[in-house]
Each structure stands twice: as C-alpha cells, then as structure tokens.
Design a protein around this nucleic acid. Structure first.
Lengths: 249, 249
DNA sequence: CTTATATTTGCAGTATTTTGCAATATAAGT
DNA sequence: ACTTATATTGCAAAATACTGCAAATATAAG
C-alpha cells in the first residue's frame, strides 16, 4: 500500500467521523501504530487535520480556521468579538480588518443581520460570504502572503473613496502613550487609510498587546473611538487608557 | 513497445485507479522497473501525474486539499488546467477568473514560477497565496455569494486600468455560433471587462458546455484567442470551432 | 545498404526512504 | 502519587530510488 493512499484513507476517515483513534486506524489499515502516527503527524503539519493525544480530529471539529490558523487565545478573541458585535446596528456600513480577532468578529455576526461590509482580508471575506444578509465588498490590492490582506496603493486609493460608519481594526502593538504601532510599514499605511475611511474606529485588542510598541506608528490612541479588550473596564491594565478620550469595552 | 505508447498506458492506469505501484506497472507492461521508473519520472516533470515513493498518483489524488469539496468532472478540469498552464511564461502578467476549472489552474501552478497574477475570485486568491513566487493582486468589488468573485462597477473600473498578457476565463455556456453566454447579467459585464483588460484571452471549458446557450451574451467566439478543453483537437465535438479564428488545445 | 551516432533499456552497486520494534519519556486518568 | 496510555527517539531490516555503464535498439548520414 502506498503512503499517499494510506494518508488519503486517514483523511477520509477523519472527515467522515470527525475524530479517529490512532489504534483504530492502525488496525483498519493493517500497519503499525508508529506508521499511522507518522502519517498523522505529516498531515497535521500540512494542516489537513489536527493531531490530538491518541488520535486526530478534522479541521472543522477542532474549531480551526480554514486558513492556517493559530488559535492562540481564541477564547479571549471570541469575548472581544462578542463585545464588538454589540456596536453594530442593522443596515449600517462597516469595515472589518484582517487578523484573527477581526476574523472571529466576522464569524460571529448573526445570519439575519442586514449589513454592508467592506473588508481587506481574504479570510474575513470568505467568512462573510456565508452570511446571506451581508453585502460584502472587497477592497482590492496587492495581497500580502502572510497577513492575507490587500495592501498597496490601489487598496489605499480604494479606501479613500469610501466612508463607513464603523471600522473594526486590529493592531500589532498598542501603548497609551505611543499609540498603535506595527512591525511593517505597508501595514501602517493601509491601516491609516482605513481609519481615514471611517466615521468611527474600533480597536480590537487582546490584553497581551497592551503597553507594547514597535517601530512604525499607525496613529495616536485618540484617533481610536473605542477600544475593546477581553478585560473588565476597571482592570488596572487599562488604567493608562482611562483618561484618554476613548470608550473602553 | 514504444516509449510513447508505454507512457500513455501509464497515464491511463493512473487516471483510472488514481494510484499505481511501479512494480505492477513493470509487470503489466513487461519492462524492467527501471524503465517504468524513468517513464514515471518524465511524466512527473511534465506534471501529468505525481510520482511518489513506490508508485505514482493522479494529480487530483495528490492535491488533497480540504478546501476543495466535491468538484464535478474534476479529472477533466485538471486536464484542462494542465494544458492551460503550458501557455504561461515566466515573469508574465496573467489574470485568473473564478470557477472550479480556473481554480484548478491556480492550484496547479508550480511553486517556483515567478508571476504577477490578478484575480477576482476569492478561492483563487487563497490558492495563489500559497505560491511563494507569485505576486497576487485582488481586483476589489462587490462579492457575489455564490460565485465568490468580485463584480460590480468598482471591479469593472479596476479592470479598466490594467492590461494583462493572458487572462484565463470560464464561461457558463459556449456555442460556436452564439459565442459565450451566461445566466447572470452582472457576470457578463464583469467578464466583458476582463476580456478588455487582456491582450489574449484563454477560455477554459469542459466539453459538456460546448454547444449550449443562455440568455446574456459575453462575447463572440472570435473574441477568444485560445479555447482549452479536455478533448483531443481532432474530436468531432470541436468541429464547429475548427474554422473559427481560434487556437484549440 | 552500411556505418556512425544517439537514444533507450536493463543491470549492478550504492544511496535513500520507509517501516516496525524496543527503550525511554511524556501525558492523562484515577 | 501511581498506573496506564500515548509519544518520542534511535536503530536495523526491507523496500525503493539513484548512478554509471554496457548492450540493444533506433535514427541519421553517407
């Protein structure tokens, strides 16, 4: 039996039952458990399934995003996304940025919500297409392979021609004093354009990113209208942001 | 037995069973395993199959991607995509349309090919992002939930500002007399803009679509430079297209 | 028709990959 | 903590792949 054939069979089994035990696979395929283990490991690194202790589960079952996703601090991000969702009113026009937190927001939008939604992010767009009542408009541009968002002059130009009610953005780093900063210059340019295209800007940001900086600056804190974290508003980590002119959720 | 003949037989076997062992091939074709090995190696470098340890698997079988659901006539579409791929030259600028056939083309592009690639299709863009040497530019616009491509005035406007070497498009229906037709008016408008943005246009089309029409017309047959089907060029289904001014692959 | 040249094929020796096993380490359950 | 189940690692045997070479075959030229 060919290795590819075996791995194909494993994938089928996983897709079918959502979860399988390595021991069952070994028996069914008539190979040693070590071989199954190695196959599953390979398939896992190719992001075709998720290896867990004693077996494997399908991507969907693992709440693993369809893109190569990190599920780091997923629960926090879901908390943030839920808070942010409350800001969105029916029939408004919003923009959703890239990043895993924003992707969660897109995922959590209710199916019956009528909305016009702009985005620069490929995964967010994929997610929004599943929502029948959301009109999705993609801001075109050169796609960045790692962040999977559109950037560059054409994206910035397209953004200059719109004005949305709310934009929901992420950031690499945020600090009460230095504002929002990024590692990548192009990302900064794009985010600036997003903020300019918005009547109100909402920052989605897990607490780990608070009080951190990097080399390029997107904007000051007061360019943001609302900052959403997973923390309670009275948490001391937010103290530095309290007397800024922004809403904390 | 001629080499050509043998390789053809190998391909048939692979297409039929999706997987073959080199030892089986050697026995069946009555040649040494080395010869089979060399043949398979050649076919692999021509991207007609994928050589693996101990045997070979068909292209469809090899690219087991979880994002690809059940695709109708996948093998034919892979054949078409492979033929179309041969038209693409290094460092050229191409545009890839939506549709499952075009998606297969994107999937089959070699990882080492340097290319600038425009697209309107979300799935195609996702696929292209996996290719490190391809610069991907997304044509923004209103996304259609079912076809997952950008359409509307902004997409058409963005297309009016570019000129690519080759565009690869699909179509709903095609007929030698009536040309390319579609069910959806917006799709027609977008495809027209794509054709205008291209020096040369290549139509990817499975044989089932030949000699069929629908209500809205995209263009005449002679607006197309090349038509790629899974058929051999002398197939009688293509007879009606023979004396048109287009290349058949 | 014959000779010269190039291609193809099979073989043998040597690398590489795959696989299962055993020993040890890590994680999960009670 | 203790026991069981699962993972990891190193290793050796088997299977498969690659290399160079010589015989066989095909192709081209005279």
């Amino acid at each position: 039996m060919l290795k590819e054939e075996r791995q194909h069979a494993i994938l089928n089994e996983v897709e079918l039952h959502n979860r399988v035990l390595l021991t069952d696979l070994a028996e069914k395929l008539e190979v040693s458990i070590d071989t199954v283990r190695r196959d599953v490991k390979e398939l896992d690194t190719e992001n075709l399934l998720v290896k867990v202790h004693g077996g494997a589960v399908s991507l969907g079952f693992a709440n693993h995003s369809p893109t190569r996703g990190n599920v780091y601090a997923l629960d926090k991000k879901i908390t943030i996304a839920n808070k942010a969702k409350a800001l969105i009113r029916e029939n408004s026009v919003v923009l959703i940025d890239g990043g895993t937190t924003c992707l969660e927001l897109a995922r959590l939008l209710p199916a019956n919500l009528k909305l016009t939604c702009f985005t620069l992010s490929l995964p967010v767009a994929m997610e929004l297409l599943n929502k029948p009542n959301i009109q999705t408009i993609f801001i075109g541009g050169t796609l960045s392979p790692d962040s999977q968002i559109a950037m560059g002059s054409s994206a910035i130009h397209a953004l200059s021609e719109i004005k949305v009610d709310y934009s929901f953005i992420g950031t690499g780093y945020v600090d009460a004093q230095y504002g929002l900063t990024e590692f990548d210059w192009d990302v900064v340019q794009t985010k600036k354009a997003v903020i300019n295209a918005s009547k109100k800007t909402v920052l989605l940001c897990i607490s780990e990113k608070l009080n951190s900086q990097h080399r390029f600056k997107t904007c000051d804190i007061n360019a943001i209208n609302t900052m959403v974290t997973e923390l309670e508003p009275w948490d001391e980590k937010l103290a530095a942001f309290k007397n800024m002119n922004i809403q904390l959720l």
